[in-house]
């Protein structure tokens, strides 16, 4: 996204298409990519992303007392959004907290519903100047702030698995560029490869103090009708996994008012969104980007 803004601002391009498409579910390329990422960790039976995030999540349990009681609020809350989204893979498949508790372990402490989906499909966004966007068919979602931070080190060498991750600095940078405070954000679309990623991102953005996520999530905070809706399409956990395009496309669609039954506002008993905070994350908490979108 920052590259897109760069080539637009420099006049090299007028419109930038950012797209993602993958037959990740029916093909084997996602699995192969994750296996190749393992390198010599495979010697010890350590594979893929779930294992890496399980290491991070376990360290967080030790450092600030999080755990499945926190993560299930995220998994169940996002599933409620997915059930308002006919395009979601988990549409028509409601999940209760009891269902979460009964779900099988994949790599403990992560259960199956703590993991994102693997999806066939794709998603795309178009970035252009506000001047051009104003004349287009859809109302624009205006980029008001961006930030990145990339701690980079592999998870086995990392000592920030329990935060602060790159989300801290990326979030602060985006808020500063936008000239707003965190409490002016109306909703979040958080890169949610795993439930723990949502918790640590919201925590590092400053929505709650370390370990207070469980209390913050009580009472349906992130759900339809909640005070801080999060991952309103169902997210990668319950809608579809299109890397960073899942959260950013949903954030833009919500700002544009194109989300049907899951539209933020009176339809879902939530605040009509003026500002949405969106994250992207790479590796095992190794890189982070944050974007703030606002209504024009």
């Amino acid at each position: 996204m920052q590259h897109a803004v760069g080539v637009l601002e420099s006049g090299l391009c007028r419109y930038v298409l950012i797209s993602y498409g993958h037959n990740a579910l029916s093909g084997d390329s996602m699995r192969r990519m994750l296996m190749e990422l393992s390198g010599d960790d495979a010697v010890f039976g350590h594979f893929g992303a779930t294992g890496g995030y399980a290491l991070a999540a376990r360290r967080a349990m030790h450092e600030f007392g999080t755990g499945p009681e926190t993560w299930k609020k995220i998994a169940v809350g996002q599933r409620k959004w997915a059930n308002l989204n006919p395009a979601a893979m988990m549409f028509g498949k409601p999940m209760t907290e009891a269902d979460y508790d009964k779900a099988r372990w994949v790599v403990e402490p992560l259960r199956l519903p703590d993991n994102c989906l693997i999806t066939d499909g794709g998603r795309a966004i178009i970035v252009t100047s506000l001047e051009r966007a104003r004349d287009l068919k859809q109302p624009p979602a205006v980029i008001m702030g961006m930030g990145q931070d990339h701690p980079s080190t592999a998870v086995a060498q990392s000592d920030w698995m329990a935060g602060p991750t790159g989300a801290r600095k990326a979030g602060e940078t985006a808020l500063a560029m936008a000239g707003i405070r965190l409490d002016e954000v109306d909703a979040c679309e958080i890169y949610d490869c795993f439930t723990y990623t949502v918790e640590i991102t919201l925590q590092d953005y400053g929505f709650f103090k370390p370990g207070e996520g469980r209390d913050w999530l009580q009472g349906g905070t992130i759900e339809p009708g909640g005070s801080m809706p999060v991952n309103t399409s169902g997210g990668q956990l319950s809608e579809a996994y299109f890397m960073g395009l899942t959260p950013i496309a949903e954030g833009a669609m919500q700002i544009m008012g194109r989300c049907g039954k899951r539209q933020l506002g009176p339809e879902t008993r939530t605040k009509s969104p003026e500002i949405i905070m969106i994250s992207d994350n790479g590796g095992i908490l190794e890189s982070h980007s944050c974007i703030l979108l606002r209504r024009w």
């Binding site: 495979a42 010890f44 594979f47 376990r58 360290r59 790599v107 403990e108």
Partner: peptide, 23 residues
């Protein structure tokens, strides 16, 4: 930190489940 595998991503580990990977 540590993680307990309940899924064998490689057939060589199927007989070890559940097993513990740690840092």
């Amino acid at each position: 930190t540590f993680a307990v595998y309940h899924v064998a991503y490689h057939p060589g580990f199927a007989g070890d489940l559940p097993y513990t990977v740690a840092v």
